[in-house]
Amino acid sequence: MKIAAIAAGGMIGAVLRFWIGILLYQPHAQFPFPTLMINLIGSFILGWFIVHGSQLVKNKTLVLGIQTGFLGSFTTFSTFNAEIVLLIDHGLYSVAIQYFLISAAMGIGAVLLGMKYGSVLLRKEGAEQ
């Protein structure tokens, strides 16, 4: 069951990343905006999910499918690095540095923000009960 949940989550995450990548694709853009958006949105959702979303789902297999399968596959580290290498190869050094720093700094920010949002929702629900 665990394996099926992770495989299913992995499928959905990868396909969604693929589609968003096509949707946001701009032929002349230098900055890899689609991957940045995907990685930041995925990090925010993961932060929220671990703190709050997983409490709603409760089923451990489903939590694994969403967290490790879906969110893990939706975001990508290999594409991030390959894009930096390609930018450097094209001589776009300052874009490469910007992309690296923005991803690293905002990635942590996105996860923290997601966790904060999750704990605010948790507290709200606690107060209502």
Binding site: L46, T75, T76, G107
Partner: peptide, 14 residues
């Protein structure tokens, strides 16, 4: 793309 992960990395850092 799925083998590697950015979101888990960020969460582990935090």
């Amino acid at each position: 793309g799925a083998l590697t992960t950015f979101s888990t990395l960020q969460f582990e850092i935090v």
